Measured scan of single mutants.
Amino acid sequence: GETKIIYHLDGQETPYLVKLPLPAERVTLADFKGVLQRPSYKFFFKSMDDDFGVVKEEISDDNAKLPCFNGRVVSWLVSA
């Protein structure tokens, strides 16, 4: 499998796309960081919350699996 991750960088209009050679349910924050090489950023991901619906959730645990929608991951990188 392959996972497409779209990421928005510090408010830039056009998002970036990276592809990881892993199925979406196995991709972790560490996998994503390894491709990006951007150490001083906070990582937020499109996520579903039972109370609020669609939210941007910050993930900082490198072992955390990334939230996935239709085989895609959507993220926002914010300068720390």
Rank of each mutant, 00 (worst) to 15 (best):
Q37P: 13
L20H: 01
V73E: 02
D49M: 08
T3C: 05
F69R: 09
T28Y: 03
F32R: 06
E57V: 15
G34T: 12
G1M: 12
V27R: 01
H8Y: 14
A80D: 15
L22E: 04
L20T: 01
S47V: 15
K56W: 15
F43Y: 12
R26I: 08
E25S: 11
L77Y: 00
L29P: 02
E25H: 12
L29A: 04
S75Y: 03
T14K: 15
L66Q: 06
G34V: 08
T3P: 06
Y41F: 13
S75T: 06
H8I: 03
R72E: 15
D49Q: 12
S60C: 13
L9S: 08
L17P: 01
S79T: 10
M48H: 13
R38K: 14
P15Y: 02
E2S: 11
Q37A: 11
E57C: 11
V73I: 14
L36T: 01
Q37R: 11
P67T: 02
L20N: 03
R26W: 02
S40I: 15
L66R: 03
G11W: 07
V74Y: 15
L22F: 06
N63P: 08
T28K: 06
G1A: 11
I59M: 07
G53S: 14
Y16S: 10
Y41K: 02
A24G: 10
G34K: 14
S47D: 04
E58V: 05
L77V: 12
L20P: 00
A30E: 01
D10I: 01
V78K: 11
V54T: 10
Y7V: 08
L36E: 02
D49S: 15
T28V: 05
Q12E: 15
R26K: 13
P15V: 06
G1P: 13
D31T: 09
E58K: 04
Y7C: 04
N63K: 10
F69G: 05
L77T: 09
I6V: 10
F45P: 05
V74T: 13
A30P: 05
Y41C: 09
Y41N: 02
Y16E: 10
V54D: 14
S60G: 05
P67L: 00
A80R: 10
V18C: 05
D10M: 01
F69H: 12
G11D: 14
V18N: 08
Y41P: 06
L9R: 03
F52K: 15
K33C: 05
R38H: 12
N70Y: 00
P39Y: 06
E57I: 15
F43N: 05
E2K: 03
V54N: 12
K33P: 00
N63C: 10
A64M: 09
D51Q: 14
V27S: 03
F43V: 04
P39I: 12
V55L: 10
D61C: 07
S75L: 07
V73N: 05
